[in-house]
Structures are given as C-alpha cells and as structure tokens.
Amino acid sequence: MTNPAISICRVLLPALLLSACGANSVVISGSFPTPNIGKLPIDLAVVYDDNLLDFMYTEYSETGQEEYYIQSGQSHIQLFNAVLPAMFDNVTFVDNLEAAADSGADAIFVPNIEEFQLALPAKTRLDVYEVWIKYNMRLLTAEGAYLADWELTSYGKTPTETFLTTESAINDAAVVALRDLASTFALSFARVPEISDWLANR
C-alpha cells in the first residue's frame, strides 16, 4: 500500500516542474468603444470564420522554445460585435455562408487574421512592447459572389513600466492594435474602391 501523500507528490511534482518550464498563455481582453460615425445604409450579414474564432499566436524564444500563447480570437469577435452595428443600418451575425445567403442581407462580411507579430523589449532592446496584425477582409454579395477583398494592418504599442508584467503589457499592446483596427476599418470601409463603386451603383 503506497502512502497517499507520496502518490500526490508523484503527480504534483512533475506537473509543477512542467508548468515552470511551459509557455505562458495570454488571453487578450479589453473594452472597445462604439464608433461615433454615421451609419451606412447596408443590411450586413457577418460570418466569423473558425480561423478567427480560435485564433492563437505562438511566440518563440530565441532558442526556439514556445514562450507565449496569445489567444486573441474572442477579443476580435468582441471588437467586431461593438463596431459593426454602429457602422451599418442592420447587422446579422450568422454561423456560415449558407445561413448568410438565407438571411436576405445586402452583403456578407467575412473578416480574418492573416498574420500576427509580436516584438518584446527583451528581443528588440526598445522600451516598448509592440503588436502588428494583418487582416484579410472579404465582402461578398448575398449569393456569395466577390464584392471586395482587401487587407488592413493594425499596430499597437505600450511602454515598459516597472511593475507591468509581460503578459499585461502584451495585452495592452494588443488592445491598442485592436482599437487601431477598429478606427482604420470604420473610416476606410466606404473608401475601398470596389465598395465605393458598389455603394454608388446601388
């Protein structure tokens, strides 16, 4: 009969040692304001792709070890949920393109993240944490045909501070980048040439 305390130690000790060596996880969270702009007369259906919903970026250390897991999918959903209803007359969130086609919307919007980059002060020797995100935005007709396909980039940074943890600083820089995305998207949407032409011909 093994001592229960020894059994617990056998399980807990390796787990503790592993967790000490493992990568840190950062779930991006923040609050996003609604844009203070005029609404476009569009009935929009929005489809969040699984790549966006479950988006996670892995930052590797200089020795190739996994250092940080950055989960920003849900924060992007939260951002689009705040921004889109303030930009368009009517917004419907649906699960897939078929449901979007059935919704009777004027257009279908499918946002996606193409690239995520992180710059840490320990690597750049600068006193700021920086986040770059590159997006692919697609606008389709109600039937799923191409309307517009464009790229957006966003950037956020936060300075190093004495009592700021790396996880908090990454979160702060990512939230600034998300605000940057929202502001650029809100102000440039109607200026995308294909969208501008489509709006003019409606």
Binding site: P35, N36, V176, D180, A182, S183, A186
Partner: peptide
Amino acid sequence: FLDAMFPWFEPRT
C-alpha cells in the same frame, strides 16, 4: 474623451 470621439482621435487618425 477618446472613447466618446472614437475613432477620430486615435494615434493614426
């Protein structure tokens, strides 16, 4: 002010 004026007073705008 920045939240109420969003997106007009962000670093890029």
